[in-house]
């Protein structure tokens, strides 16, 4: 048999290492595990982006029937990723700022940064600009549940807040207290 890429029913292209039996075992050789961890985190982020998944929990590797089955289970070779292995991978991703434990102070659930907060900030600012919402006060809800679906639909508030903070630092946004919580105002760039 040979090890090749494979396209899942949802149209995601799995790398050839996903067909390797040993990829699902936590390696005792540190160097080998580092390679596996890197491949897993790349795979997780690419898949999350493909399916627009923001959250990953350890249980997703425990039970089947969730959106992660396509990558955590390989029925063609009868292998699966176990939660303790996933936990190790998540820890590494958090240490490399590719994910963040959310809620904080636990280690069984993360938010995935398949776009960095800086990249989300650009998306956010362009969205506000193109929809003519510069200088208006928006609630977080206006952004995460827009009338016209956008790239930001359903974005977790924790990620949104990071993106806004990036913009605040460069004076392109302002955090504002509104009646039912927090709001934001995007500021048009002047003098350029």
């Amino acid at each position: 048999m040979s090890y090749s890429t494979h396209t899942t029913p949802s149209g995601f292209l799995l790398p050839s290492i996903h067909a390797a039996q040993a990829f699902y075992t936590k390696q005792r050789n540190q160097q080998t595990q580092a390679i596996f961890t890197e491949n897993w985190s790349r795979l997780i982020l690419a898949y999350a982006r493909h399916k627009r998944l923001f959250t990953l929990r350890l249980e997703d590797a425990e039970t089947s029937g969730n959106p992660w089955d396509e990558i955590f289970r390989n029925t063609r070779i009868n292998r699966r990723l176990f939660p303790n292995h996933l936990s190790h991978i998540l820890q590494d991703m958090v240490s490399k700022n590719l994910a963040v434990y959310d809620p904080p102070k636990q280690t069984s659930s993360v938010l995935l940064f398949w776009r960095t907060p800086e990249e989300w900030a650009d998306v956010l600012y362009e969205w506000a600009d193109s929809t003519g919402l510069m200088n208006s006060i928006l609630t977080f809800y206006d952004i995460t549940e827009p009338v016209v679906p956008s790239q930001l639909s359903d974005i977790p508030v924790a990620i949104l807040r990071r993106a806004i903070n990036v913009l605040v630092k460069v004076n392109r946004a302002q955090l504002i207290a509104v009646a039912d919580g927090e709001g934001v105002r995007f500021l048009a760039q002047t003098g350029r």
């Binding site: 039996q21 699902y24 390696q27």
Partner: peptide, 10 residues
């Protein structure tokens, strides 16, 4: 580091 371990082998 010349081989990989597979603990889910049949």
């Amino acid at each position: 580091g010349l081989c990989w371990l597979d603990e889910q082998d049949e």
